[in-house]
Design a protein around this nucleic acid. Structure first.
Length: 575
RNA sequence: GGGGGAUUAGCUCAACGGUUAGAGCAGAGCGCUCAUAACGCUUUGGCUGGGGGUUCAAAUCCCUCAUCCCCUACCA
């Protein structure tokens, strides 16, 4: 027997502010879930973690808008996101929060270690302060007239009209984007910087060791490492209330009172903290989570895989590794980084800020999660941006799920019920045709495993579909409805194989469509979810005499009326 | 401005220097009647975005133009 692997999986952390759209989902959480479910199905030990990213200015502003204290707002939104994640079948072992006490402690711990290592510098900076808002304004929240093109809604970091990079002090007639107040002043403030420049060679060597990463990933990292003056130091603190207070471990940090760590410093640390939260929530010890994260405490044999959208790559290849390497402590670092391009919506982009596209909660109002899971994964934007259209969605889902898989289940179970009753028929033996099918399926299942192991999501979906098709091909050529008239025993064996195929399909398909797989196991009245290492044995799992029930329609087809209705309903922006 | 990615059949995508560029869907024809008008078989679709180059050989490598997307360090 091959040894059971241990696999740590994290999905990029969704920001707490609002409900995510399908483009966000397919870029991180959903493929991460596919991989987690697959590895559990193969009997590997999996720890699958995600969390909400809760700190930062947008959360504060959203809370203000909702008329709530920010902590309360975040707690509520975390509940909303957890509920939707559950309903989408996202099988996190723990869905944490970057505002947790564990993350607070770990973030402060890392900062302390980095300081001890001489990797933190203190830099005096000048920043815009809004008297009316009573706060410092991030560059993006200062608006004014662009000195370059005269556009009157230029932001402090960049003018969207002429794309010129700006400093907030460049703006003519600057005002707060939050309140509109022009009562602004430039104040001196001190911030901590992570001396990434001092870690450049270490990071460079680490990236070089990742020879199996996509060029897309390493080239981005290399560019940041080497372009211009090379990797730049980065501010890791902010003048805000909402965040992890700046401390060196447990100790105060003189001069940094009232400041918090910048979200991009504390958010990735939550990957680790989520494991600590998981341990606490499940009555486990520190050792139980440290064996996933500390290479000196048992994490040496862990394979760590991160899933994220392409916009997140620089932070996962450089910023977070800099934090870990700089600490000098033996933390587990990422082994494989799977990044995705963007899913577009009907000729444009999905947009959270504009409410364009379909959001997770809305999707579930229309159809069960498996419909979305299948379409999104089988069309995952792996090599380039991909496109969601309602026509494509309707066609793909109807054909693949309703016709190819759903109808297969229906035809075999109903035929069996009418000729042999609702139990697996015992008579007859498998012949040449059945052996040929087993050989074909064995080849295909091994290919499916290879694609899944490589995280080739689309190819996995294609292979799975081909496995479903093989069942229909077999039935068509075996034709038990004809054979039954002259040789009922042979027809019985064919039907027995067909029923066993349904169980096989449930096992193989569960990572993609877990709810439908559960329905199939229920209908077959079996709990045998063992992986088909031996296909012939797997197709002999349900013996003659085993009772089953003809299941309800597994996937109802999307009608043209529904599609047109949804197309119209989601043509504009979210209300 | 700089860097990265993409452009292949009507649609969604594969082929990553080597037969005649492949699948699925859509379209056409035939078969089957167990089944969610489902399934199976056959089949029509391509100057691989435009132009130039390297090579015995280019969708693939190089240059250039066009269009779209991402990053560019205070959005997260």
């Amino acid at each position: 027997m091959e040894q059971m692997a241990r696999i740590l999986i994290t999905s990029a952390l969704p920001y707490i502010n609002g409900i995510k759209h399908l483009g966000n989902l397919v870029g991180s959480q959903l493929p991460a879930d596919l991989y987690a479910r697959y590895n559990r199905g193969r009997g590997n030990e999996v720890l699958f973690l995600c969390a909400t990213d809760e700190h930062g200015t947008p959360a504060e502003l959203a809370a203000t808008k909702a008329g709530k204290p920010v902590a309360e707002y975040c707690a509520q939104m975390h509940g909303v996101q957890t509920d939707i994640a559950n309903r989408f079948g996202l099988s996190f072992d723990h869905y944490g929060r970057s505002s947790s006490v564990q993350n607070r402690a770990l973030t402060q711990h890392f900062a302390g270690k980095l300081e001890e290592a001489g990797l933190i510098s203190e830099v005096a900076d000048r920043q815009v302060y809004s008297n009316a808002d009573g706060r410092f304004l991030p560059d993006r929240y200062v608006e004014g007239t662009c000195p370059n093109c005269g556009h009157d809604k230029a932001r402090g970091d960049q003018c969207e009209e002429c794309t010129k990079q700006l400093d907030p002090t460049d703006l003519i007639d600057p005002r707060s984007a939050i309140s509109g107040s022009t009562d602004l002043e430039v104040r001196e403030t001190k911030h901590l910087f992570l001396r990434q420049s001092a870690l450049r060679d270490q990071l460079d060597a680490w990236i070089d060791s990742k020879t199996d990463w996509p060029v897309l990933t390493t080239s981005i990292a290399k560019k940041w490492l080497h372009d211009g003056d090379g990797l730049q130091d980065r501010g890791i603190t902010r003048d805000l209330d909402w965040g992890v207070p700046v401390k060196k471990g447990d100790a105060d940090w003189p001069g940094m009172e009232g400041k918090v760590f910048y979200v991009w410093f504390d958010a990735p640390i939550e990957y680790i903290a989520a494991a600590a939260e998981w341990a606490e929530a499940n009555g486990k010890t520190d050792a139980d989570w440290e064996r996933w994260w500390r290479t000196d405490k048992g994490a040496d044999d862990v394979k760590y895989v991160q899933f994220m959208g392409k916009d997140n790559v620089p932070f996962h290849t450089l910023s977070f590794p800099a934090t870990i390497l700089g600490s000098g402590e033996p933390w587990k670092m990422v082994d494989h980084l799977k990044s995705f391009n963007y899913l577009n919506y009907d000729g444009g982009q999905f947009s959270t800020s504009q409410g364009r596209g379909v959001f997770m909660d809305q999707a579930l109002e229309l159809l069960p999660a498996d419909f979305w899971r299948w379409w999104l994964l089988s069309h995952a934007p792996e090599s380039s941006d991909s496109e969601f259209t309602w026509e494509n969605f309707q066609q793909s889902v109807n054909k693949d799920l309703a016709d190819v898989l759903g109808n297969f289940v229906s035809r075999i179970t109903k035929f069996c019920r009418s000729k042999f009753g609702e139990e697996v028929p015992s008579a007859g033996e498998f012949g040449e045709q059945e052996q040929s099918l087993i050989a074909d399926l064995t080849t295909r299942i091994r290919a499916y495993e290879d694609h899944m192991a490589a995280m080739d999501v689309r190819k996995s979906a294609q292979e799975l579909r081909a496995i479903w098709v093989a069942g229909n091909e077999y039935l068509q050529s075996a034709a038990p409805w004809s054979v039954f008239k002259t040789d009922p025993d042979k027809a019985a064996a064919q039907v027995r194989l067909g029923l066993n195929l349904i169980r096989l399909y449930a096992v193989l398909s569960a990572p993609f469509i877990p709810a439908a797989a559960d329905s199939l196991f229920d209908a077959l009245k079996t709990d045998d979810r063992s992986w088909p290492d031996d296909v012939a044995a797997a197709l002999d799992a349900l013996k003659g005499g085993h009772a089953f029930a003809v299941p309800e329609v597994l996937f109802a087809k999307i009608t043209d009326e529904q599609r047109e209705d949804w197309q119209a309903r989601f043509a504009g922006t979210r209300t």
